[in-house]
Amino acid sequence: MEVRTIKVFTTVDNINLHTQVVDMSMTYGQQFGPTYLDGADVTKIKPHNSHEGKTFYVLPNDDTLRVEAFEYYHTTDPSFLGRYMSALNHTKKWKYPQVNGLTSIKWADNNCYLATALLTLQQIELKFNPPALQDAYYRARAGEAANFCALILAYCNKTVGELGDVRETMSYLFQHANLDSCKRVLNVVCKTCGQQQTTLKGVEAVMYMGTLSYEQFKKGVQIPCTCGKQATKYLVQQESPFVMMSAPPAQYELKHGTFTCASEYTGNYQCGHYKHITSKETLYCIDGALLTKSSEYKGPITDVFYKENSYTTTIK
């Protein structure tokens, strides 16, 4: 009895394709271990004539594949690729409408935090270190965002349907971005203890939790000093293409032309909904596939993004 075979390709990165001759009487799992086709788990399936010449994702289970996976995804987590594939199996079914010149995501599976993050990423200057993220990001900007969303979920250790947080998501993504040249110098002034300067680099240099107003941050924000008295913390120097200011959701007025974009969060910790506000020729609110415009805006804002380049204080 002759062994019926077909020729397929296996890959971990969709760049390096490895030619395989597979036995049609055995499952993919018996031949390769966990195997995925377009995100779908085909591990328990036997090869079919229609699979001839198709590319299958496999887990990096030998040295060659491990090197290829690390170079593309910059992670050695053995569960990463499987999590990416199972997320992709959902995100490829989502709709990605162009809204006001940006790629958004039609609401499904509690994905409003991903839509808000995706919209924000198209408006701030950011370059990702893992080629996987950078490639998928370019495709997302062009309207094909399924891979990018699935990668975000995998890097953030999230599953489809789980509630997510924009600030946490951005923080994970910033860790995989090139923020080497970003720098922030802060000064804390206390009447009792004097003053202390701190220099922050990388992710810490672009994120701040405690106030939404970048102007206020430049002037000074009140913080408790270690001595128990009130101290003032203010920005001395900022070198970065953008800054992200966050605070627990509270009524906040966004003035046209003073910011790049913002995240609105309605609801409580267990259950809520994100919308995205962007400042173009007027203010726009993007909620999944829905767009509304207004000249002014007041609502429960939790993150505001500002364009920056270089700032030095005039406070002496």
Rank of each mutant, 00 (worst) to 15 (best):
T35M: 11
P248F: 07
S295I: 15
D13F: 02
G299I: 03
H90M: 11
Y269S: 10
V166F: 15
H256G: 10
T103G: 03
K293C: 12
A205S: 12
E144R: 07
T314M: 14
Y138W: 09
S25E: 10
V8H: 00
H48L: 13
T302D: 05
V22G: 05
I15S: 12
S294V: 13
E125M: 09
H273T: 06
M170K: 00
G220L: 03
I124M: 06
L118P: 03
Y274W: 15
A142C: 15
A117C: 10
M1L: 11
Y234N: 05
R66Q: 14
K307Q: 09
K183W: 09
Q98L: 09
K127G: 08
I124W: 04
T64H: 12
L151M: 07
N309D: 10
E125H: 10
N147R: 10
H18D: 07
T76N: 04
G194W: 04
L37F: 12
C156K: 01
V12I: 15
I315D: 13
K218F: 02
Y274P: 02
V160K: 01
E71Q: 10
T198A: 12
A247E: 04
S181A: 08
A132E: 01
A145Q: 02
V8P: 02
P60S: 08
F148T: 01
L173K: 01
S104M: 03
L254R: 03
P47T: 01
Q123A: 03
T278G: 03
I277C: 06
D180M: 04
D63G: 06
I277A: 03
L102H: 15
V189F: 10
H18R: 11
T103P: 01
L254D: 06
C225W: 02
A136S: 09
E239V: 11
A150Q: 01
R141T: 13
C225N: 03
T159P: 15
Y72V: 04
Q122M: 04
L291G: 10
D38K: 10
G33V: 01
E162Q: 08
Y214C: 04
P130D: 01
P130N: 06
F174R: 01
V8D: 05
L126A: 05
M209F: 13
I277F: 07
Q31S: 10
P97L: 09
Q230S: 12
G257S: 09
Q238V: 02
V189G: 03
D77P: 00
K293D: 07
L102D: 01
G39T: 11
Y96W: 02
L290T: 11
E144A: 06
N100V: 10
M244Y: 06
S86N: 12
G257D: 07
A247Q: 13
Y172E: 12
G267R: 15
T314A: 12
V189A: 07
S213L: 05
S86R: 13
G194V: 03
T199G: 06
D180W: 05
Y28M: 04
G202C: 06
A150E: 02
F174E: 01
A108Y: 06
K93W: 04
R167I: 03
Q222T: 12
G82D: 06
T292I: 10
K158Y: 10
F217T: 05
Q270P: 14
D62M: 04
Y138S: 13
Q238N: 05
Q20K: 14
N61H: 10
L153T: 03
M24F: 11
T5S: 12
S79M: 12
T302P: 05
L81C: 06
A177N: 00
D109R: 06
T232L: 13
C225G: 03
Q251Y: 08
Y208P: 04
N16F: 05
G257L: 03
E68Q: 13
P248G: 09
E52L: 10
R66K: 09
E144T: 06
L65R: 10
P47G: 04
V243L: 08
G164L: 04
G272D: 03
E52H: 10
Y274E: 09
S246H: 02
Q270Y: 10
C227T: 02
M24C: 14
Y84H: 03
E215N: 09
D165V: 09
A115K: 02
H276C: 05
I124Q: 00
H18S: 08
P34H: 10
W94T: 00
M244L: 05
H176Y: 12
T103W: 13
L179Q: 04
R184H: 03
Q197E: 05
Y28Q: 01
G143I: 00
K183V: 09
A154D: 02
A142V: 12
F148Y: 01
N61T: 13
F80T: 00
A150I: 01
V304W: 04
N61L: 13
L133F: 00
T169Y: 00
D303C: 11
K95M: 11
P131D: 00
V3G: 13
A136Y: 07
K106V: 03
A154H: 01
C193Y: 05
T159L: 12
P131R: 04
E125Y: 07
K233E: 13
A289H: 15
R139D: 10
K218R: 06
C149I: 12
W94F: 04
Q122N: 00
L133H: 00
P34K: 12
N61K: 12
E264K: 03
T11L: 04
L163S: 14
T19K: 14
L186Q: 08
F259W: 02
L102F: 08
T232F: 09
P241W: 02
Q98C: 13
Q134T: 08
A262S: 06
L37M: 13
G33T: 01
G220K: 04
Q196D: 05
K7D: 14
M170T: 00
T282I: 10
A250W: 03
E162D: 14
G220D: 04
G194Y: 04
K229A: 14
I105Q: 01
G228L: 02
Q123H: 04
N100C: 02
Q216G: 10
Y155H: 04
M24L: 11
G53P: 01
Y84L: 03
D13T: 07
E204F: 01
S263M: 06
G228P: 04
K280Q: 13
